[in-house]
Amino acid sequence: MNKIDILIVGVGGQGVILASEILSDVGLKAGYDVKKSEIHGMSQRGGSVSSDIRFNKNKVFSPIIPAATADFILGFEKLETFRALPSINEKGIIISSDFRLDPMTVSTGAAQYPAAIEETIKKTHGKTYFFNEEGIVKKIGNPKAINIYILGALASFLEIEKDLWTDVIKSRVPPATVALNIAAFNEGMDIAR
């Protein structure tokens, strides 16, 4: 692929930023021009977080992905995945956790959490992979490695050498968690099977 635009979305504190750091380093090492942009919100925790990562064999101009052109959405929370939907292009691939975290507006009753998000998205977007967060956490053994699991899932759709991924992951995660994260990455690579 000459151009790969990836939007990562989630909630503050979920590891969106680390995932985007690893991903953009992988792009750089794979020989792409890379830009990445995110907004550090008002608060450290609890708000929506999104990160735009753009790879191009030629040149990336805007650091922001234009509407309806993202090739991938990586969602850490399903309401945030739903919110990001206008960004994806027609053939784009959506990889998302089925995790639900109610925003304050829903908890207080001021708003409703949309019903049947997975079904709604799958109706319009064929290439959608929702994974069961609880099941995956049980398999990989630690909820903190979900971000690396999601990168593994993304890697299974990209033509970038696996060693490149694992090298960057090893350099970016705490040394004591390398084995865990590599295992999470490998598990993620199986998502489409």
Binding site: M42, R45, G47, S62, L79, F82, P103, T105, V106, P114
Partner: peptide, 26 residues
């Protein structure tokens, strides 16, 4: 990119009417 392109070409995109609850910081 979208705002600039639409402004120059005088395109007025429809705003999606999705009713998605906001997630304000706390």
């Amino acid at each position: 990119t979208d705002i600039v392109r639409n402004a120059i070409k005088d395109i007025r995109p429809e705003k999606p009417a999705a009713n998605i609850p906001v997630r304000p910081p706390a």
